[in-house]
């Protein structure tokens, strides 16, 4: 897992765009407890900006009527929320038992040695970022790699290299 202890401040205020603003209002009435809207709102913020800044968290807390620290709690618990900028291709490698046993380390080592990024890092050109994540729920087809939300199953180093080559 990448370091999730720091929140980054952009110094600029955050607000949902018109489309997401409407989406927020559409969704929020579904929840009897307003705080339940925190997770969808975090998703929306991440979709909009690519990652979640301190300002985005404060905005969500204010919009929902809860404490910023409460939103932070959820944002730091779920690894799917990015608390710092990610690359154009964000690579998640599952590190839980099945994937570990089936060779996820080869992929992790390759990324470190050849691409030059350790978990939590991003290539200088901003093309790739990478992190290790907990179980992605596809243990039957381990090891699993997820890139920008898309699953790539039964990976090995060869397939992984070929996959990266297709990404421009």
């Amino acid at each position: 897992m990448s370091d999730r202890s720091q929140l980054i401040s952009t110094g600029e205020s955050f607000a949902f765009d018109a489309e997401r603003d409407a989406e927020f209002e559409r969704l929020v009435v579904r929840y009897p407890i307003r705080e339940s809207m925190i997770m969808p709102a975090l998703w929306m913020a991440q979709e909009q900006a690519g990652w979640i800044s301190a300002e985005a968290i404060e905005y969500i807390a204010d919009r929902i009527g809860t404490f910023p620290a409460k939103v932070l709690e959820l944002a730091t618990f779920y690894t799917m929320y990015q608390l710092k900028p990610v690359g154009r291709y964000h690579i998640c490698v599952c590190r839980t038992l099945s994937c570990w046993l089936r060779g996820k380390q080869d992929i992790v080592d390759y990324l470190a040695d050849e691409i030059g990024i350790k978990p939590g890092e991003m290539t200088e050109d901003g093309k790739f970022s990478f992190e290790e994540v907990e179980c992605l729920g596809h243990c039957g087809t381990a090891p699993v790699v997820q890139i920008n939300g898309e699953f790539h199953e039964e990976m090995d180093l060869k397939k992984f290299k070929a996959l990266l080559a297709t990404l421009t």
Partner: peptide, 25 residues
């Protein structure tokens, strides 16, 4: 949260990294 109504701190992170944290650490 419940008594003071301030929410200055929360439990952040998960697993072994879970910790009591102020906002933005």
């Amino acid at each position: 949260k419940e008594m003071v109504g301030l929410g200055a701190i929360d439990l952040c992170g998960r697993g072994y990294e879970t910790r009591v944290s102020t906002f933005a650490g």
